[in-house]
Simulated assay, not measured.
Amino acid sequence: MAEAPDSHPTDAPGPGPGPEVLDAFASAKGFMPVDEGLALHAAATEAGLLGLPLLEIGTYCGRSTILLADAARRAGVTALTVDHHRGSEEQQPGWEYHDPGTVDAEVGLMDTLPTFRRTLHRAGLEDHVVALVGRSPRIAALWGTPLGMVFVDGGHTDEHATADYEGWAPHVAVGGLLAIHDVFPEPADEFTGQAPYRVHRRAVASGAFSEVSATGSLRVLRRTGPGPV
């Protein structure tokens, strides 16, 4: 989950994000590389055609939220993003992906919510996003609306990745998309990518989802049936 470079293509193909959205994505704090971002935007744009909300688990500072919000704006739907904003395991002090600039000096804990809000404001996309602030399983337990897309990009332990999948995948409408980030099948990537990889394999094995695309560590699957996930 290396920090993504701030370069981007100068011309987005066809229905892809326009230059202003690409600029906002490139300048936002976060980890998603450009090729995966473009694939996510394409999937979200397709899912938006169902006329249902698009939901992201793992907001961080809003880099990928920009792409979901742009797709939602085009489709006339809402992008939803779920995060407790205290940082996942690998973002805590002493870990490789910790950013001291995200720590609230008063309480001594990470708080990425202010940065996320500034990211959306700069991108001009605040009106197209609803931020759900809290822990993913607790919010999922209260949720009852079908979703056109679920993008799983939260915690990277088996406990958290599994909870995100079990809480939200059942809400993907038939024909909708499930996207999973940081899918790395190699055991050397145990901390950052093995749990998402196991969730990906579980989704495929369920028979309720079929693979659509793979770009870098991003996997996109389609809900093909109403059975259990």
Results as ranks from 00 to 15, higher is better:
Pro5Gly: 15
His8Lys: 08
Pro15Trp: 06
Gly16Thr: 02
Pro17Trp: 03
Glu20Met: 03
Val21Trp: 03
Val21His: 00
Val21Ala: 15
Ala26Lys: 11
Ser27Ala: 15
Ala28Val: 01
Lys29Asp: 13
Gly37Met: 03
Gly37Gln: 02
Thr45Val: 11
Leu49Met: 06
Leu50Thr: 04
Leu52Ser: 11
Leu54Tyr: 09
Ala69Asp: 07
Asp70Glu: 15
Ala72Arg: 02
Ala75Arg: 03
Leu80Trp: 11
Glu90Cys: 03
Gln91Pro: 00
Pro100Gly: 13
Thr102Pro: 00
Val103Leu: 14
Asp104Val: 05
Val107Ile: 15
Asp111Pro: 05
Thr112Lys: 04
Pro114His: 02
Phe116His: 14
Ala123Tyr: 05
Gly124Cys: 06
Val130Lys: 12
Pro137Val: 04
Ala140Leu: 02
Leu142Asp: 15
Phe151Ser: 06
Val152Pro: 02
Gly154His: 01
Thr157Tyr: 00
Thr157Val: 00
Ala163Met: 04
Ala163Phe: 05
Glu166Ile: 01
His171Asn: 04
Ala173Leu: 06
Gly176Gln: 06
Ala179Ile: 04
Ala179Glu: 05
Phe184Glu: 03
Asp189Ile: 01
Glu190Lys: 11
Glu190Asp: 15
Phe191Thr: 14
Gln194Lys: 06
Pro196Phe: 00
Arg202Ser: 14
Glu211Val: 13
Thr215Glu: 15
Val220Ser: 10
Val220Met: 07
Leu221Cys: 06
Pro228Gly: 12
Pro228Cys: 09
